[in-house]
């Protein structure tokens, strides 16, 4: 029956989806087994959506370029940046970061940068990758 619903359904088969594809075509029976398969490289998953050009991800910190001027501490809203007086460098807690990018704008030596990395969820907020320059 050529109703508008039928046309809409046919159109949906060919048009690009508005949202991201699911990681895998069919829901796996066992999530842990599927995750293990992915790690071994046997199961391919759909990549996440493309990032916009100005995406604000995890902070990247160039320790050598830093002169320890402490201006970034003055604009950080969540105290994610902590000064280390003995080294005259900063320490960054990723879990506290609000990704406002004010420290990047303010840095006179451009040693802070917003990277594209966004897969930063974890169980240990003081873990290996969660504190920069520990």
């Amino acid at each position: 029956m050529p109703t508008s619903t039928v046309f809409t359904l046919i159109r949906q088969l060919v048009t690009k989806k508005a949202t991201n594809k699911f990681p895998v075509t069919y829901a796996p029976d066992n999530m842990h087994a599927a995750a293990a398969e992915i790690q071994k490289g046997r199961l391919k998953i759909n990549p996440p959506v493309e990032l916009p050009p100005n995406f604000r991800g995890k902070l990247a910190y160039d320790v050598d370029a830093c002169i320890g001027c402490k201006i970034c501490l003055k604009v950080c809203p969540s105290e994610a940046l902590v000064f280390k007086p003995e080294e005259k460098k900063i320490k960054h807690y990723v879990s506290r970061c609000t990704f406002c990018s004010q420290c990047v704008d303010v840095c006179p030596k451009d040693c802070l940068k917003m990277s594209d990395e966004f897969l930063i969820a974890g169980l240990d907020k003081y873990g290996k990758d969660m504190v920069l320059n520990p």
């Binding site: 050009p53 100005n54 604000r56 609000t98 990704f99």
Partner: peptide, 22 residues
Amino acid sequence: WKVRERVMDLLEYITGNRVNYA
């Protein structure tokens, strides 16, 4: 909510984040 995604994507494209634009 599906059609709303388009304007959220545009905001992310302009500002760099989807909800908290800073």
